[in-house]
């Protein structure tokens, strides 16, 4: 059974139709990349999947693990194993990153019927994952994303993914604003999470990230639809020729 199945998805934000019939199937173990020009609806798609208020589905269906995803509230989707790495991670003043991670993990564990980890177990659990991503204890103590650099915020997103161990990770422009070293660290963190059970949807504007996270499939999202799909070589083509060819071809 596919992990994620998007069928003819139409969605509006306010009165504006942003998604105009998206079809996409992700099987366990696969990494799909979505590329596309700015404003093409990539983040909108990620928000629709995650269940954000204000993004309305007008047509179509999304199945997650065979279940109707769109009828589930946002927190239940997260507990069921859908993770969104935010393009713009949110700051929460006064809440230590560690506290946030612990609250989130225990919420997800409770949903799965697992006992909460005690303080010691949790500390070890997080440190192990934080080390890989070069997230320091100091960062863990600081308020969530408050005063974090762009790179720190993105590493923190990946750390959250590593802690929550989702079934499907949607990573929205996790590469934007990263220098090459930070990009490598993030990519390593993501690659370490690739398993035969887990699926990933990597959203990016640039091909660069896909040098480090090799996708099984690449899709081009523009004008609210997936205009082209292919293997990882498609990303290289786009890099060379830009999006104009594809979007222009469609218009013709």
């Amino acid at each position: 059974m596919p992990l994620l199945e998007i069928q003819n998805l139409h969605a509006t934000v306010g009165d504006k139709e942003i998604l105009k019939g998206i079809n996409l199937v992700i099987k366990p173990g696969q990494v799909h990349a979505i590329m596309g020009p700015n404003g093409s609806g990539k983040s909108t798609l990620s928000y629709i999947l995650a269940g954000r208020d204000g993004y309305d589905v007008t047509k179509g269906e999304v199945l997650f693990d065979g279940k109707d995803l769109l009828s589930m509230p946002a927190d239940e989707r997260a507990c069921a194993g859908l993770f969104l790495g935010f393009q713009y991670p949110v700051e929460i003043p006064g809440v230590a990153t560690m506290t946030f991670l612990k609250t989130a993990l225990n919420a997800v564990r409770a949903y799965r019927g697992d006992d909460p980890l005690d303080a010691m177990q949790f500390l070890n659990y997080v440190r192990e994952r934080a080390m890989v991503l070069n997230v320091t204890d100091d960062m863990l103590r600081r308020a969530l994303n408050v005063g974090f650099s762009g790179g720190e915020k993105k590493r923190n997103e990946i750390l959250q993914m590593a802690v929550l161990e989702p079934r499907l990770a949607v990573l929205d422009e996790t590469d934007s604003g990263l220098d090459i070293d930070a990009l490598k660290i993030v990519a390593e963190g993501v690659n370490a999470m690739r398993t035969p059970e887990r699926g990933m949807l990597v959203i990016t504007h640039y091909q660069r990230l896909l040098n480090y996270i090799e996708p099984d499939h690449v899709h081009v999202l523009a004008q609210g639809r997936i205009l082209q799909s292919g293997g990882k070589e498609l990303a290289l083509e786009l890099e060379k020729n830009g999006y104009g060819d594809i979007t222009g071809a469609e218009a013709a």
């Binding site: 997260a78 969104l84 935010f86 991670p89 949110v90 989130a104 919420a107």
Partner: peptide, 15 residues
């Protein structure tokens, strides 16, 4: 802040 609420919910916290 709605962004903060959604962010927390996306990590599994109920409202």
């Amino acid at each position: 802040n709605d962004d903060q609420l959604f962010y927390c919910q996306q990590r599994g916290l109920n409202e």
